[in-house]
């Protein structure tokens, strides 16, 4: 297992280096710079601004300087928000995005897992079709639509829940978590249904039933473990996707997360912020993929033995 982890960590270093390099040059190739503005900026001012941020140096020198700072964990000053460093912006936004992502994931596992298991118990009956159709709707309805609908119903007509904010008013985290989680709930429902169906036809399930175990014990104690492997494998990428894809939900609910900074950085040509957030998310994605692989290996005895059984 340690060899497996070590190998995967080594593998990820060149990946992240490539991400940095490509992003660094791509943002600088994009037309329009961080200091172009609607009201013309006089050349002297522009030159002064570029000098303050080192943009007057040759591009390769800027690149080396950036790598040097990065090695010290310094992501540089933000271009758009003078007085704020990229580290500071990420530190402000990421905990919020991570919390939102975590709640969304819990919603997704809770709703999706139950729907998938329930559906798999009576395949091709109403008990299967109804949750799966609902799941399909979850995949099809984008959060851009889901969010405002939930707000209208629960926030404005029923006045049960706040319509925006994060941690300011009690209950303001519920609607964003459901909105963001619903898409993933649908995927998890489909994955867990497929996983469970496969497991339920296995010999050891038949053995369990033959022992005379009640059906719920068969499902919970024996089938769930194997049936959930596809879901666990999906969790890593899903969580990474939740982190990098929460922009829409953050905007709808006015949540001060990383997603809003990240997307605005691209529009603003905030070079250091784009790079900083990209590198940060790239590292996170690599880590989460690794974690979910390890978890899946632990859950699957065949994979475990393949990597030396060190678990």
């Amino acid at each position: 297992m340690w060899r497996f982890i070590g190998f995967r960590v080594l593998q990820s270093i060149p990946v992240i280096l490539v991400v940095i390099t490509v992003t660094f040059f791509l943002v600088r190739l994009a037309p329009g710079g961080p200091f172009s503005a609607e009201k013309a900026v006089i050349p002297e001012v522009k030159a002064a601004l570029e000098a303050q941020y080192g943009l007057n140096l040759p591009m390769f020198q800027q690149y080396l300087a950036y790598l040097g700072d990065l090695a010290h964990g310094d992501l540089g000053p933000s271009f758009k928000y003078p007085g704020r460093s990229v580290n500071e912006l990420i530190a402000a936004g990421f905990p919020v995005t991570a919390e939102l992502g975590l709640y969304a994931l819990l919603v997704a596992i809770g709703i999706g897992g139950i729907a998938g298991v329930v559906a798999s118990l009576r395949p091709n009956t109403a008990q299967d079709y109804i949750p799966m159709s609902v799941a399909m709707i979850g995949i099809c309805v984008p959060s851009l639509l889901m969010g405002p609908i939930l707000i209208l119903v629960f926030g404005i007509y029923l006045e049960w829940l706040p319509v925006s904010g994060w941690g300011d008013i009690p209950g303001d985290k519920i609607l964003p978590a459901i909105t963001l989680g619903s898409t993933y709930a649908a995927y998890i429902a489909r994955l867990s249904r497929a996983g469970m169906l496969e497991v339920m036809s296995q010999d050891y399930i038949r053995t369990a039933r033959a022992k005379g175990l009640p059906e719920w014990q068969v499902v919970v104690r024996h089938a769930l473990r194997g049936g959930m492997i596809p879901v666990v494998a999906f969790l890593g990428p899903a969580f990474a996707g939740l982190l990098s894809g929460s922009f829409v939900v953050e905007t709808i609910f006015q949540i001060p997360g990383l997603g809003r900074f990240y997307v605005q950085a691209a529009f603003n040509r905030d070079y250091t912020m784009i790079l900083g957030a990209t590198v940060f998310l790239a590292v996170l994605i690599v880590v989460f993929n690794l974690l979910s692989d390890i978890l899946a290996a632990w859950m699957n005895p065949r994979l475990r033995s393949q990597y030396g059984g060190g678990a």
């Binding site: 404005i156 319509v163 925006s164 709808i252 006015q254």
Partner: peptide, 13 residues
Amino acid sequence: AENISSEERMFRV
């Protein structure tokens, strides 16, 4: 309030 539709909802409540 970046998103103007969200802002309008904030005003409404």
